[in-house]
Design a protein around this nucleic acid. Sequence first.
DNA 1: CAGTGTGAAGGGGTTCACAGCG
DNA 2: CGCTGTGAACCCCTTCACACTG
Lengths: 217, 217
Amino acid sequence: MAPGPIDKSQVPQATVPRLARYLRVLHRLEREGVPKVSSKELAERLDANAAQIRKDFSYFGEFGVRGVGYEVEYLIDQLSRCLGVSEKWKVIILGAGKLGSALARYRGFQEEGFELVGVFDSSQRVAGSDIDGVTVRPERELPEFLQENPVDIAILTVPGEVAQLVADKVIAGGVRGIVNFAPARLASVDGVFIRQVDLSTELMVVSFYLSKECSPR
Amino acid sequence: MAPGPIDKSQVPQATVPRLARYLRVLHRLEREGVPKVSSKELAERLDANAAQIRKDFSYFGEFGVRGVGYEVEYLIDQLSRCLGVSEKWKVIILGAGKLGSALARYRGFQEEGFELVGVFDSSQRVAGSDIDGVTVRPERELPEFLQENPVDIAILTVPGEVAQLVADKVIAGGVRGIVNFAPARLASVDGVFIRQVDLSTELMVVSFYLSKECSPR
DNA sequence: CAGTGTGAAGGGGTTCACAGCG
DNA sequence: CGCTGTGAACCCCTTCACACTG
């Protein structure tokens, strides 16, 4: 692959979440003190296809040594850079309900370059309370907060009915990335990346494959 | 499409989660009192392609009336049956941590034919506590519980290190479907459907598309 | 004649197979 | 000689276009 900046539109969308998974396994290998790894070994750990892994890497550069494999630490550096997790991203959570506060307390996000700088909720009841050191603020303070504290990514865990409204507010406040857990499609906006996550569909997918058949009538 | 039982392997994997989303929009239309809908109208609500929707339906039967569209209630019945959510599925949650208890309290699951019959946790501290009427039990009671109460689906929200261990236990206990939120691939087992959900990758996907570029070195 | 149902075309992603290199 | 990097084949899925029908 040619050197120089990579055109992201050339990278298959399906590749991106896989890179994140590769990175997780690589971190584990690093902790285990494994210095190098082949695409075949990685594939076994992930039960994936070795060629797939090599091709995914190839969109970004040549990270391996032919006949040998990949140096774990070097590969982690490269993939982190490709995924953009070497940068420090400022994150806020909108909606301190069940899911929102669960995510706020989740360590995993913090570990990979994401810094939770605020939690907002419309309810007066939860406002002022504290989630692992981050204060829950009333949602009406959001515009002012965004003006004073530039935020990169917003996680939406609000009810579906207000999701679009809240999304509009964070976008107006300069947020460029949204992970939406609310069961509502958000209108797309130029320059803003929106990722939809549908937890409630997951059980139905399982239900589909479990149910014996689905004959008409 | 021919009548009679449908072969699930004929249905594209990508179609299944979409059916769940169609169903959600249809339920909203039902609540709004809309009696019928065309694939074009559905497509606008979902921002999807109308032909896609029609093709997805076509794997299961002919649900519409040419020149008219689809009757909302009838379509809901048909899609529910296809997805298997007309049946009542018994669900347990393994791991009453942040995410586990958030999911346990989540109403959405209950509404679509899924019945939460148990929550289990390895910690003595949480065992005995109560989440919206469901008692959290110590994990060692799991085998006995599964013997007395047949369970269809298990939701895994345990730490990654013990996920495989816990999965083995529920499979041994007769569970045939697993939704795994733990950041660990589970070994596949014949006759058991496993769905992997990776929350921690979602932020990285956003980070990828936000970061300006990823030039080598 | 409007909107469904669907064969066929098109595109994207995965897998193969092997050339290339350490 | 072994494993990477990658063009090409393959496969799955999406989209188009239109025949079909209430």
